[in-house]
């Protein structure tokens, strides 16, 4: 009986390991191909260990497009976006859970509805608004048009609802203002949820493509997703440029892989707790 169970588990492990390898294969293939020579690619593109490491592919990619600028742009815009999104989302979630005011239910319904709203519906007017504000082709335009995160509001609202009301009341009778209660009591008590929201929002913003591609078109103002696609398009799908394209792509993907490997257990937990129910 024990023996059977062990064999069964081994079979399952093998199947899942194969699936897992399949999942990370594109990343591995990208990394391997990024240091291959063109001839290596043609002779055997399946080969996992290159005959020689051609690090100059990376230098060539960096010479062809300002990847470091792209990465820096993505990093700072995403950081500001995530911080402000969480700041605002915490305030709204606190008002929704701790205040009684006219239109609270209506406001919540609007926020919930916005969660289902395909963002494409807003692109054309938002584009015009940014144009009027003179913020087209500007990273600040990208930042301010991304400050509302309905998903974070809903996630935090759910967490804030679980704060015992006596704790809030104790703080009130301790003389704390609502502002202090939010930042000194409620937010520290829910730091895990905030971390979850931050990670999800970070990945979303950093990887976002369509909206930034619509509003950013100057090379120095591009974020990594936009810059990378332009780089890849400019080199075309000629087989001989393949290793350089892979090197460029690797520059865009590696930061996320590194973040993922370091924060892996937080990521898994973040996403699992993120199923928002209305």
């Amino acid at each position: 009986m024990k023996h059977m169970e062990r064999i069964q588990r081994l079979v399952i492990f093998t199947i899942l390991l194969l699936c897992g390898v399949l999942m990370v294969y594109p990343m591995i293939w990208m990394l391997v191909s990024s240091v291959k020579s063109t001839s290596d690619v043609f002779s055997d593109s399946l080969r996992l260990i290159p005959t020689a490491f051609h690090w100059e592919n990376f230098a060539n990619a960096l010479a062809a497009a300002p990847f470091l600028t792209y990465l820096w742009n993505s990093t700072w815009t995403t950081t500001i976006i995530v911080v402000l999104q969480l700041l605002f989302a915490s305030m709204v979630a606190y008002a929704l859970t701790q205040f009684e005011f006219f239109g609270r239910r209506g406001l919540f319904a609007i926020i919930l509805g916005t969660y289902m709203l395909p963002s494409a519906t807003t692109y054309i007017p938002s584009y015009v608004i940014l144009g009027k504000l003179n913020l087209l082709n500007s990273l600040w335009g990208l930042v301010i048009s991304n400050l509302a995160n309905v998903f974070s509001i809903l996630l935090l609202r759910q967490a804030f609802l679980k704060v015992p009301k006596e704790v809030i009341e104790a703080a009130r009778s301790d003389g704390a203002s609502e502002w202090s209660i939010l930042w000194r009591i409620v937010v520290p008590m829910n730091r895990n949820t905030l971390l979850n929201a931050a990670l999800i929002s970070f990945v979303g913003s950093f990887n976002d493509y369509l909206w930034p591609s619509l509003i950013l078109n100057d090379k120095h103002n591009m974020v990594i997703s936009v810059g990378l696609n332009q780089f890849s398009n400019s080199l075309g799908s000629f087989e001989k440029s393949f290793p350089i394209v892979m090197a460029g792509t690797a520059l865009a993907v590696i930061p996320l892989i590194v973040v993922y490997v370091i924060l892996q257990r937080y990521f898994v937990h973040s996403v699992q707790t993120a199923s928002v129910k209305g």
Partner: peptide, 20 residues
């Protein structure tokens, strides 16, 4: 006068301690 302005101290049934 809201709670924070009344000089009254309150002890709650489930203690309501700040966990952090």
């Amino acid at each position: 006068v809201p709670a924070k302005k009344r000089n009254i101290a309150m002890v709650f049934q489930n203690y309501a301690l700040y966990p952090h």
